[in-house]
């Protein structure tokens, strides 16, 4: 048992928070005559949460009960928390992010997968109960605002979905369809190539062990490079998942001139199960496209576009 001296900083219903003179904060039991600012001497036996002391414990039974309660609570909480992680969506812009959602598509967490994502998330506030659709859009728009997606670059966004359930394939497809729908319906001020893919749970584990987002892992695994970056293959560069990391300074050579009728924004990107998943109305590049990756060109909204129209069919590039 150890004794500490702390200053009471906050008194709550069930406990108080003290700050020790070496800048540590502790939760201690509430007792009589507690006053904000008062110095108190307390022991590890007074800590509300799991005692940190590893020294001899006089009140062994209490400690055991506390530990047992803690373990039990942890188990119960983990049981409750488990269903929360229903699916993972990775968004590689670069920044590279991994979004965890629950079954109702509420975002339960966003993990930065590289330093650019750190910076992006620094500027992004994830509110409680925010749904995936809103988050994806906000992240894409924020990436634009922060200069990761600009009209000067050949922008590539890789969206990857994985549902961690028995019927994961159909679940993932459904989720990806929703994501594509959202992107389709949203007006952006910049062009980008959207590469979408659905993956399996086992791949997420491997991606994690490699320290990569699911999407970047999938790309590396299948030696896939998105349009505009294929040229790099000719150079003596290893096909690494960092392909998206490279600032897209590559000139947009051989960018296909789209027939007037096809200069459309993303439409109905729902056929990702097909062998040749070509969503109608989209300009599709098929070279170097393994079946699992679907490529969609999304054009910037024209300034003349009427926002009230909902879908942006026929919306060409700004100029």
């Amino acid at each position: 048992m150890r004794a500490n001296k702390g200053k009471i900083m906050e008194i709550l219903e069930s406990h108080a928070v003290v700050m020790t003179s070496d800048g540590h904060f502790n939760r201690i039991k509430r007792k009589d005559s507690m006053r904000i600012g008062a110095d108190v001497i307390y022991t590890s036996g007074d800590l509300v949460e799991k005692p940190s002391s590893k020294k001899g414990w006089v009140f062994g039974l209490k400690a055991q009960v506390a530990v047992a309660t803690f373990v039990l609570l942890t188990l119960v909480m983990s049981q409750i928390a488990m269903p929360a992680a229903y699916a993972v969506v990775s968004l590689d812009i670069n920044p590279s992010l991994q979004i965890t959602v629950d079954e109702s598509r509420k975002v339960v967490g966003i993990d930065p997968m590289n330093t650019e994502a750190d910076e992006l998330l620094e500027a992004y506030v994830l509110n409680e109960d925010k749904d995936l659709h809103a988050v994806i859009n906000e992240l894409i728009k924020l990436s634009n605002a922060m200069g990761y997606l600009t009209n000067e670059n050949h922008n590539v966004i890789l969206a990857t979905a994985m549902v961690d359930r028995k019927n994961s394939k159909s679940g993932s497809d459904e989720l990806m369809t929703e994501i594509l729908d959202v992107i389709e319906e949203t007006e952006y001020t910049f062009d980008f190539t959207l590469v979408s893919t659905v993956r399996e749970a086992s791949e997420l584990k491997n991606a994690k062990s490699e320290g990569l987002s699911l999407g970047r892992y999938a790309m590396a695994k299948e030696n896939f490079l998105p349009p505009g970056q294929e040229k790099k293959i000719e150079e003596p560069v290893e096909i690494e998942p960092v392909a998206l990391d490279a600032e897209p300074q590559i000139e947009e050579e051989e960018k296909p001139t789209l027939p007037p009728g096809q200069e459309k924004k993303v439409e109905e990107s729902k056929n990702i199960d097909n062998e040749k998943p070509v969503p109608p109305g989209q300009a599709i590049k098929e070279q170097n496209t393994p079946s699992k990756f679907v490529i969609t060109e999304k054009k910037a909204a024209s300034p003349n576009d009427n926002k009230g129209n909902g879908k942006n069919k026929g919306g060409g590039k700004g100029n």
Partner: peptide, 25 residues
């Protein structure tokens, strides 16, 4: 055994010892 004393005294008085000069301590 000082922490033990602090803990025991505190549990009797129902309040934390505020200084090392506390009479109860």
């Amino acid at each position: 055994h000082i922490p033990f004393v602090i803990y025991t005294v505190s549990s009797v008085t129902g309040r934390y010892i505020s200084t090392e000069n506390d009479m109860e301590y």
